[in-house]
């Protein structure tokens, strides 16, 4: 039977214009995969060792992230992490990890469950302070920190993934289905960030 061509990928934010100002800009990060990794009972240290052996990077502690050769790992709960990597490398990386984690951790593909956004710019913290009820002061929320919190009425996971002269870069993970609402919230927050 005639098969139709391979299914194309389409972002849930396709065609949605991303808000930006001199102070802060939002952009979607595409082409990344993300796995959830959750340890089975009593397996946390075995999982940590296996993960370090296979990837060369340790799983981060609570509230922290780790970055290693294109792989970003975010702590996401007690003995749980999100592991992000380029989509192209994901199958290979997972195939390498799978035997080591087999029976020790639950692995679930979450690549499409979230939209991955980046908010960057000198007013990025001020923008997030319009939406998120957590303290994002540089002395409190430092590079490499992550937190599960709210942005408006949507659940998000934030991570401070970069920074420099152009200001901090936050990764914002949010549920795919309501991502257009989140972008709308950012639109208002970015416009308002430098004001008042």
């Amino acid at each position: 039977m005639a098969k139709i061509p391979e299914l194309a990928a389409r972002s849930h934010l396709a065609g949605v214009s991303m808000p930006q100002s001199e102070g802060a800009a939002l952009r979607e990060v595409s082409g990344r995969a993300m796995l959830s990794l959750a340890c089975h009972a009593g397996n946390a240290s075995r999982v940590a060792r296996a993960f370090k052996t296979e990837t060369g990077v340790a799983l981060p502690k609570a509230g922290k992230t780790a970055w290693h050769e294109g792989m970003l790992i975010l702590w996401s709960g007690l003995n749980q992490w999100f592991v992000q990597m380029d989509k192209a490398n994901a199958a290979g990386a997972f195939a390498q990890l799978a035997p080591a984690l087999n029976g020790r951790a639950a692995v679930t593909d979450q690549s499409d469950a979230f939209v991955m956004l980046e908010l960057a710019g000198p007013l990025a913290r001020e923008t997030l302070a319009r939406l998120c009820p957590i303290d994002l002061h540089p002395a409190v929320f430092k590079p490499g920190d992550t937190a599960r919190t709210l942005a408006g009425h949507l659940a998000v996971q934030l991570a401070l993934v970069g920074g420099g002269e152009t200001g901090p870069v936050f990764q914002v993970l949010a549920a795919r289905s309501s991502a257009r609402d989140l972008v709308h919230d950012f639109e208002i927050a970015i416009a308002s960030a430098g004001y008042g």
């Binding site: 340890c39 749980q80 951790a105 679930t108 979450q110 499409d112 289905s177």
Partner: peptide, 9 residues
């Protein structure tokens, strides 16, 4: 271990 997969599919 549980995780929502509603949004994934």
């Amino acid at each position: 271990q549980m995780i929502s997969a509603t949004e994934q599919w």
